[in-house]
Design a protein around this nucleic acid. Sequence first.
RNA 1: GCGAAAGUGGCGGAAUUGGUAGACGCACUGGAUUUAGGUUCCAGCGCCUUGCGGCGUGGGGGUUCGAGUCCCCCCUUUCGCACCA
Length: 858
Amino acid sequence: MDAIYRPEVIEPEAQQHWEEKQAFKAVEDTSKPKYYCLSMFPYPSGKLHMGHVRNYTIGDVLARYHRMKGYNVLQPMGWDAFGLPAENAAIANDVAPAGWTYSNIDYMRKQLKSLGLAIDWSRELATCKPDYYRWEQWLFTKLFEKGVIYKKMATVNWDPVDHTVLANEQVIDGRGWRSGALVEKRDIPMYFFRITDYAEELLSELDNLPGWPERVKTMQRNWIGKSFGVEIHFPLAERHEVGGEVLKVFTTRADTLFGVTYVAVAAEHPLAQQAAGHDPALAEFIAECKQGSVAEADMATMEKKGMDTGLKVYHPFTNEPIPVFVANYVLMGYGEGAVMAVPAHDERDFAFAQKYALPIKAVIKPTDGELELPLPAAYTEHGVLFDSGDFSGRTSEDAIEKIALVLKNLGLGERRTTFRLRDWGISRQRYWGCPIPIIHCPSCGDVPVPEDQLPVVLPEDVKIDVGSPLKKMPEWSNCACPKCGGKAERETDTMDTFVESSWYYARYACPDLDKGMLDERANYWLPVDQYIGGIEHAILHLLYARFFHKLMRDVGLVNSNEPFANLLTQGMVVAETYYREQPDGKKLWLNPADVETVDGVHLLKADGKPVIAGGTEKMSKSKNNGVDPQALIDKYGADTARLFMMFAAPPEQSLEWSDAGVEGAHRFLKRLWKMVYDHIEQGAANAYSGGELSDALKDFRRQLHQTIQKVTDDIERRKQFNTAIAANMELMNAMAKLEGEDSLTRSLRQEALEAIVLMLAPIVPHICRVLIKALRPGACLVGAAWPTVDESALVQDEIELVLQVNGKLRGKLKVAAAAAKEAIEAAALASPEVQKHMEGKPAKKVVVVPGRLVNIVV
RNA sequence: GCGAAAGUGGCGGAAUUGGUAGACGCACUGGAUUUAGGUUCCAGCGCCUUGCGGCGUGGGGGUUCGAGUCCCCCCUUUCGCACCA
């Protein structure tokens, strides 16, 4: 064994060894429990960022730990290779998206390999390859035939100058990012997955996912948004007749029905369109509503505007006329595209009514009090009805039931359950994506591409400018109708990249299968036992993948209900930002790697002049605060990078980048190396296997086995690696204080060092591979077992209790582990520290918490 | 705007079930080693106080023998909002 720790030598050696031995190749084996460990696959953006390093290290620690525990482990890797950035890069650098993507994959694969991940690379896949997406297209055609996929109009962001559809991300302050033109809403036909058909199951199955973080489940529940309410019909004619025209609205607060003072409809609502026909001002307002992006955050924060249509609807009970407004905050895509407004009991309606001087009519008051009138703000709680005809005096809950019942009898409404969740539109007017396998035939309509004509291959040799090249390639889009053989055209839209990422986890089980999408191997490996990825995916990706799993189940491809048994949502990697004000007032962002801090002053290394700290933020290009993991790996090695990432914060929290912290991690590895080296230099030793121990050695051995117990629990149950590392550091500190070179002491040192090296092996595998070989000649890290706890070493005869007087710490007390409560109480009262702070007063109460403390109340 | 989290020393964080707040590490200070720098090792390190002791987990209130942890209100920050991935 070398005296000096040289990561630059041992890491490539270890990686080469693992690759040659195919050490992490996963083979289906029913004799062992399986463990499928999956980290979210990366988008091949160019090079790895710190978030990737963190994500894949967490996964690797869990994969390697379970391997040591005897599981048959699968840890695969692949590429989420379709997407918008490739098209942007293509325009910027005049290269084809495919070439750009493949070269990024090659570079990033090399980077991933330098991290020493225990990955089965033989299962690697890329979603942009036809052998992957052909099965997505195949499933699409099956689902289209089943009716799970359908076509309808949907609203998109339209750039009127570039004549392209914009992603929400490409709309900045209501303008197209390239053209700067004001964005408009435009309706175009799109394909949709009927995810709402699965809303109920997606909601209820969350209860069967104990391995998911509560907060993710809560977010998904709220996103699905099941609500119980009432559909209410407002007649358009004063004397309503059964079957007459009505305006339908949905509300969860039918109890406030008598407080309705107006109704509001979306700009696209037929009533609004009808009214605009003979009102130019209204037509202009409706046109204005068409401006701006379709993003909900924008819609919800914009100024609420409306205009009276002059039309009236009639209250279903009182028959009073109610004005119909067009409002920019009512969305056609939601429910009926119309809402009833109750200013007295809804904050948004209250603000709107004040702005347009509409009446505010209170009809709900608190159960145990009166309302302050006139209302200073909307009263949104449930309560008791008043001024509500026959329903006055009823509670909100009761009134909702009764009102629904009466409405039903009148034929003007009924109870309804709705979901906030909308169907998933997957059409994208982009090039770099999976082609939608539909052929448009003038006589047969939308015809799915027959199985024997799949895949519909995306041409890779293209020139990109504004808009998708597919729309300008008749040689690609012109084809024969599979049904009638007549002239037809291919769909030129591609699929949302979320579709590819919704089933890749299953394809890893059988990436080589060319006769189908999945085979029985998928049922061997699924569900994924541990899924790891960023918290930003808590809703969309995870919901779509859950949905897709159920779709695959319902066509017989998999036999489980949920794709991911356990989920770990990793926090972001953040770093300090630094900037300088430019003469034009703009900020010039400077990379933290180029800034040094001396006595609390931040200086640019290049010129030694100060820069301004802009706060800690997520590593990003825009703030130039990304730290390249490659520089870190080149300087210190992968083990230091891995250790720092795992030690600096628990995985679910955000992780703050720190140069000094990296130094500390590296120092620790050098210390570990030296400890093993110094021990081995003293000659071979066998791990402790019995014999009488002094109190000091007994204490040390107890600490060793307590540490094994804690680290096992930290990794397996708590998934908190920072405390697992800290416990090993504490054990090493204790060992450094252990003196003596007698064989008993040395045998304990041997036992402890072996355990420490094995416990750290999942985190820092390269160094531990060398150290375990040094400690146990002939040993091999791959296949080494996780250390076990010797229960007999944990036994303790005497324990220390904390003494409190009135809840304040006043002293400590050593008692026999088996001491009776009464004896502890007596000993505590007799202790001089306690006596002093009781000041002669009698004890009112004595609380004894076994094994913990005694609290004396005076 | 809506939904979900987070807030503890100079810094990252620990405290797992309501029971010793600050483990472990970084930074800093002092000492040893070294020609020096670096490295390594040892010791100290929440705030106030000479001391006894007091105060202290974003702010305010509450429950409890006992609250970082539970409850109510407020503030700040972060993530998501359906075409970024």
